[in-house]
Design a protein around this nucleic acid. Structure first.
Length: 291
DNA sequence: CTCGATCCCTGGACGC
DNA sequence: TGCGTCCAGGGATCGA
């Protein structure tokens, strides 16, 4: 479940590990989650990894132009480009010595110029990998919402308070905020004392302000602790994160609330399991049937 | 605009 | 031990 903090952790690890390396060749396994597998094989070799960025839950490997190519394409094929990586639920990307046996579910291997291989593994293949030219990348990144760590309180309120969708759905909506997933949505709602089924429009300015502050605090702390490892998240060094120890809501159904000692509940909100404290996060007036 | 349902996929938990 | 079933969930898509 890599969300913003986990993706940020992986991106930082990759930055340390592979910046400046050149990709020599590409080997593919299953490719049904790759936009255009042939493009990877064709366009990655010869390019240098110049930067690793995070955009929401995406990672962006910025690739150099191809130099010394005898047949430089007129269609911009040799120009700088990017590799877009989304880890989905179970994606992992990390360098390992080229000789090392392949982990199960390894679907992309990029041989680097220092004898290592950058490998992508993904059991469920909910992830996504795409080779993108500058124009395609720009197109790909339109329609995303604000970065939750950067968003001002005014913009946050604007994006939330006018909406009739549930706050949980809004937090998960990547076109509202980019990078928040189920764990950090629930954690921030618990901290802010807001029920996940409250409508955006039902939040006061004060509540929106508090929610933003809690969300940012939690995301920063989670990044500092290298993310949450629930089932199988590992960073680019193959290490689990530590933030799961600080979860106050996610996965705590039936356990005592850290604030009021009441029992946490789980309900499906916006199609996702949502954990909350019925006492600290009072339910909205129900619009429909409900006991 | 917002909703729920469905699909993608595999591993792990659980019941019998 | 082993099988079947359910669940996890980010995102796309479709119909209501």
């Amino acid at each position: 479940m890599p969300e913003l903090p986990e993706v940020e952790t992986v991106a930082r690890g990759l930055r340390q590990a592979i910046l400046g390396r050149r990709i020599l060749s590409v080997t593919l396994g299953k490719t049904d989650f790759i936009d255009d597998p042939a493009a990877l094989e064709q366009h990655l070799p010869g390019r240098q990894i110049e930067a690793v960025e995070r955009y929401g839950k995406f990672m962006l490997l910025r690739l150099s132009a191809v130099h010394g190519q005898t047949r430089v394409a007129a269609n911009g094929d040799a120009a700088p480009a990017s590799l877009l990586v989304h880890l989905g639920m179970t994606g992992q990307i990390a360098p390992s010595p080229a000789g090392q046996p392949l982990e199960k579910h390894t679907h992309v291997c990029m041989l680097l110029d220092d004898g290592r291989e950058l490998r992508y593994t993904d059991a469920r293949r909910f992830g996504r990998i795409a080779y993108l030219t500058k124009a395609l990348l720009a197109e790909e990144l339109t329609g995303f919402g604000a970065d939750p760590l950067e968003v001002s309180k005014e913009e946050f309120a604007d994006r939330i308070c006018g909406r009739r969708a549930r706050i949980k759905a809004l937090l998960l909506d990547q076109s509202v905020l980019r990078g928040v997933g189920n764990i950090y949505a629930d954690e921030s709602l618990w901290r802010a004392g807001i029920h996940p089924a409250r409508l955006g429009a039902q939040l006061s300015k004060e509540q929106a302000k508090r929610l933003r502050r809690m969300l940012q605090e939690i995301l920063r702390k989670a990044i500092a602790m290298r993310g949450s490892s629930i089932s199988d998240f590992l960073d680019a060094e193959g290490e689990p994160g530590e933030y799961q120890r600080h979860h106050r809501a996610y996965g705590r159904e039936g356990k005592a609330c850290y604030r009021c000692q009441g029992l946490l509940r789980r309900a499906i909100v916006a199609g996702r399991s949502s954990y909350f404290c019925p006492k600290c996060q009072p339910a909205p007036r129900s619009r429909k049937r409900r006991s």
